[in-house]
């Protein structure tokens, strides 16, 4: 197994488990998660409720897909979109000085949004970008070379 494949496997397992863990708490307490989204004061109550339905279910499906190895690149791309959205939400909350808890992986977590939280999410986004890049399909020329070789 090549180094690249091992690295992708580690990222798949890491993000897969992270998404399953995160979705579990959000799915079991949808109202808490809806309130967490609403606390960011970006979306109203109505969109927060929809977010509380869509986001945990997306995380659950992404977790399953990443762990089972189905649609890997698509799953990493979708998770990157989610992480970018989370990053924007967190940074805007920090800039506006909102005194709210992140609720990123568990709606009942009480950690404030500080530089460490932004760094943590930034790091996850970078890891996700790496995963998307590493799972990029090989150019056709290389494929032909591989096939002929």
């Amino acid at each position: 197994m090549k180094k690249k494949e091992i690295f992708v496997l580690i990222l798949r397992l890491f993000f897969g488990c992270l998404f399953l863990y995160s979705s579990y708490f959000k799915l079991t307490e949808p109202l808490d998660f809806a309130e967490t989204i609403e606390n960011y004061q970006v979306f109203g109550s109505w969109l927060s409720h929809w977010g509380a339905i869509l986001i945990p279910a997306s995380e659950l499906i992404l977790g399953i897909l990443l762990l089972t190895g189905i649609w890997i690149r698509e799953s990493f791309t979708a998770s990157l979109l989610i992480f970018i959205a989370f990053d924007i939400m967190i940074v805007q909350a920090a800039i506006r000085g909102l005194d709210i808890s992140c609720g990123c992986f568990n709606p009942s977590e009480n950690g404030p949004i500080d530089a460490l939280k932004i760094l943590e999410n930034g790091l996850l986004t970078v890891m996700n970008v790496a995963a998307v890049v590493l799972t990029r399909p090989a150019p056709e020329g290389n494929m032909q070379q591989l096939e002929s070789g």
């Binding site: 997306s58 499906i61 649609w71 698509e74």
Partner: peptide
């Protein structure tokens, strides 16, 4: 596929809810 993934997620989310 990404679009489909989010559609499936939305439907699953509504059923779970």
């Amino acid at each position: 596929r990404i679009f489909l993934l989010f559609i499936i997620a939305l439907i699953s989310g509504l059923v779970i809810n």
